[in-house]
Each structure stands twice: as structure tokens, then as C-alpha cells.
């Protein structure tokens, strides 16, 4: 040992010493980062165990501050929940919340708004696997469950009509007749459904995120959920009959346009007509 250090010490002024130290430093930090950092897609062939443990790593960094280190939830001093327990919410809930960008939240608030997603698909899968491992819950639905394309062609029209009935009975009260969203008490809201992926609509019905009630498979069968999605998709595909939908907010926006566009233009015309008389010319005093 003495010998080694002495030998090293004797070479510490060598012109190559700086380069060697630099290389060593880079190697150590790089290696340590690769080993210790939240693992990104490392091994696609890894089994469930690996997915869960990778998900746990991600969870501890990005989610535990609100949901607790074991996803048991955190209760504040005055008894309200800081972050709810995730035991038993299932992979579908994680997939919905994380891939629509709702989780992780940017700051605490009455409701998590939709935003750009923070975790990529692989990471979402890992997180979902970890949360699913905590307790039994709904799994991420498969394409044949939610995709309206899987409905046989001859049954599709009937499915759409049926889905419309379900939609009007269960969804319009909050999401509005056109799915353009609506207000709920206390600053909460039902978000717009226009442009939402079928998978996420299905997961939302299944897990009841934020203020939404759960439509379990006993309440609304999987194929009925798919019908609702088929109706929403049919609405998006049909053109706006009768012109611009004015935001699809109903009579309030129509009233606004009646005043601003209709009466505004007509009063403008009244001014124009009155300004043009047989004996009056603009710009010339009598």
C-alpha cells in the first residue's frame, strides 16, 4: 500500500496525470449515474418483477412526496388528504392519470388539469405495474375493449345510438351535451371530451378520476362503455351541421352572438342608412 501510494505519488506530476484523473472522474460519475439514477428503459425483456421495482424507483422520486413512500397516502394535520392512498386503484388509474399528464400535479389544487405528459410510455408502464402490485385493481384495458373499430360493421350504427342514450343519461349532466365540458361546485369541473383518446375515456369510466363517479363493469358493461366511446367518436366525425358550433356551450354563447354579431351589425347598418340622406353629404357643412 505504501509502495503503491508512493509510486502514484511519484507520478502525480507526470504530464499525463491530469488527463488520467479527468478520465477516471468521468468514468466514476457516469458509471454511478447509470447505476443509481431512476432507471429509464433499460431492459425491455425484464419480467414483471423488474417492472415493479423500476416503477417503485420512479414512484419514490416523482410520486411519494404526496402519496407516501408506500403509496399509503398522506393525511394532513386537519384531516384532509394531501395525496390519496393508491392501494387498489389499479394500473388503469395510473395509466389514465399519468399519460394524460394529470399526474404528477404541478401544484396542489382542487383538481389536476390535463397537461403534457411527463413520463413516457415505458415509464408509465413501470409506474402502473408498481401500483398494480400494491393491491388488486382494474387493469389497463386492451384495444378490443375500448376501440369502437372492433365493433362489427353491421352492429356499429346500433351501438352508436345505444352509446348516445348512455351518454345522455350518465355523462351530459357534467360533460355537456356535446362533451365540451361543464362546471362543478367549488372550482371543480368536468373536462372536455373532444379529442380525448378512446383508451383514456374508457379508463376514466372504469376508475372515476378526480370528481368523476366510477362506472364499474357492473354498472356499465365493457361493451356499453365502448358504445359511449363510439358515440363520442361519431360526433367528432360528423360535420357541424348548420355552421360554426360557437363553442358548443348552448344558449349562452348563442345569446352573446345574437347581440354582438346580430344587433351589432344591424345597428351599424341603421347608422349607415341614416347617414345617407338625399340632402346630406359627408364632410360638407351646410
Amino acid at each position: 500500500m505504501r509502495m503503491l501510494s508512493a509510486r502514484l505519488s511519484s507520478r502525480r506530476r507526470s504530464p499525463l496525470a491530469g488527463v488520467v484523473v479527468l478520465l477516471l472522474g468521468l468514468l466514476v460519475t457516469g458509471g454511478a449515474y447509470a447505476l443509481l439514477s431512476p432507471a429509464t428503459a433499460q431492459d425491455s425483456a425484464a419480467g414483471d418483477e423488474a417492472l415493479v421495482s423500476q416503477g417503485r424507483e420512479l414512484f419514490l422520486v416523482g410520486c411519494a412526496s404526496c402519496h407516501g413512500k408506500n403509496a399509503e397516502g398522506i393525511v394532513t394535520q386537519d384531516g384532509t388528504q394531501y395525496g390519496p392512498s393508491l392501494v387498489g386503484v389499479g394500473a388503469a388509474a395510473v395509466d389514465f392519470q399519468v399519460s394524460t399528464g394529470r399526474m404528477p400535479m404541478a401544484q396542489p389544487g382542487v383538481q389536476a388539469p390535463r397537461k403534457d405528459r411527463l413520463y413516457n410510455e415505458e415509464e408509465t408502464r413501470q409506474l402502473a405495474a408498481y401500483v398494480a402490485s400494491l393491491g388488486p385493481g382494474p387493469a389497463i384495458p386492451t384495444a378490443e375493449q375500448y376501440d369502437p373499430e372492433t365493433i362489427p360493421e353491421e352492429e356499429r350504427e346500433e351501438a352508436i345510438v345505444r352509446g348516445g342514450e348512455f351518454f345522455r343519461t350518465n355523462c351530459t349532466a357534467c360533460h355537456n351535451f356535446a362533451g365540451s365540458g361543464g362546471a362543478l361546485p367549488g372550482g371543480k369541473y368536468a373536462p372536455t371530451l373532444i379529442g380525448v383518446e378512446p383508451k383514456h375515456v374508457y379508463e376514466a369510466m372504469l376508475t372515476g378520476p378526480q370528481q368523476m363517479p366510477v362506472f364499474s363493469d357492473d354498472v356499465l358493461k365493457p361493451e356499453e362503455k365502448r358504445d359511449v366511446i363510439a358515440y363520442l367518436q361519431a360526433n367528432e366525425e360528423t360535420p357541424n351541421y348548420g355552421g360554426s358550433a360557437l363553442g358548443s356551450y348552448g344558449p349562452v354563447s348563442e345569446g352573446m352572438f345574437a347581440w354582438l354579431a346580430g344587433i351589432g351589425v344591424l345597428v351599424g347598418f341603421a347608422v349607415w342608412i341614416a347617414a345617407h340622406s338625399t340632402r346630406s353629404k359627408k364632410g360638407v357643412q351646410q
Binding site: 348516445g164 342514450e165 345522455r168 343519461t169 351530459t172 349532466a173 357534467c174 360533460h175 355537456n176 351535451f177 356535446a178 365540451s180 365540458g181 361543464g182 362546471a183 368536468a190 360526433n235 357541424n240 351541421y241 348548420g242 355552421g243 360554426s244 358550433a245 360557437l246 358548443s248 356551450y249 348552448g250 344558449p251 349562452v252 348563442e254 345569446g255 352573446m256 352572438f257 345574437a258 347581440w259 354579431a261 346580430g262
Partner: peptide, 30 residues
């Protein structure tokens, strides 16, 4: 206005059913 701006899209509201209601249920402006 009738040609360019949609008003009262009844096909979106669906037939009346006392069990149903929609967000944005408002009367006409007056």
C-alpha cells in the same frame, strides 16, 4: 347568421327524457 352559425342543435341534445339533463342547460338569452 342562419347559414353560418349553428343555433339550438337539437340533434345533439337528444329527445326529452325527464331522467336526463345536460350541463349548459340555459334558456335563450331573453
Amino acid at each position: 347568421m342562419g347559414g353560418l352559425m349553428q343555433i339550438n342543435p337539437v340533434w345533439r341534445f337528444g329527445p326529452y327524457n325527464p331522467a336526463e339533463v345536460t350541463a349548459g342547460s340555459q334558456p335563450d338569452w331573453y
